[in-house]
């Protein structure tokens, strides 16, 4: 079961990472367009600024689940280093479950938030705020699924602060 969870987690994460890379690429290009427009083209495009904010939020929020899959979110091991291995595992599993509950909360109320946003006008493109706000429930659902998978994969056996060299 732990093996299956591990494979599912990796597969899901690979897909999400591809999507995130695409969003980041669009983000970089979008901001370049904004700069080029202001100094060269003078088209006064109204959308690069808004689009950049929403792309940034989508990319960063989706990437939370990638950080979960790789156990990159920074934590503290001061106490855990001093307690027996079995207790440590229980503690870490309990924390995964609390985090799972947290993201389920964000997911559940995020749905209502996005539906309310769908009724509000974004003042640009003539669109609603729904597509932007949907980043909250979607990314929370992904984070929750990843948490469940890595909980089954690691069963509290993960090293803390493992790959933080990549984290800032």
């Amino acid at each position: 079961m732990s093996d299956l969870a591990s494979r599912l987690s990796a597969a899901l994460n690979a897909a999400v990472e591809r999507l995130v890379a695409l969003l980041m690429l669009l983000l970089v290009v979008d901001v370049w367009i904004g700069v080029v427009d202001r100094y060269l083209l003078h088209l006064q495009l109204p959308w690069p600024e808004v689009l950049a904010r929403y792309l940034m939020i989508w990319a960063a929020l989706l990437a939370i689940s990638c950080g979960i899959a790789r156990r990159e979110h920074i934590g503290l091991s001061i106490l855990l280093d001093r307690i027996p291995e079995s207790l440590r595992r229980i503690s870490l599993m309990a924390m995964d479950i609390v985090a799972l509950a947290l993201f389920l909360y964000v997911f559940w109320f995020g749905i209502g938030f996005a539906l309310d946003g769908a009724k509000r006008q974004a003042l640009i493109f003539g669109l609603s705020l729904g597509p932007a706000y949907a980043a909250i429930p979607v990314s929370a659902a992904l984070a929750a699924i990843q948490l469940l998978l890595v909980l089954m994969r690691d069963l509290g056996g993960q090293r803390l602060v493992d790959q933080t060299e990549e984290a800032i």
Binding site: M24, C66, I74, A167
Partner: peptide, 20 residues
């Protein structure tokens, strides 16, 4: 470059989850 884009998003995600 693909790897860097993903890593950048992950690092941003780690900071943004704290900000959020």
């Amino acid at each position: 470059f693909f790897g860097m884009l993903v890593r950048t998003a992950r690092i941003t995600g780690i900071i943004f989850v704290i900000i959020a």
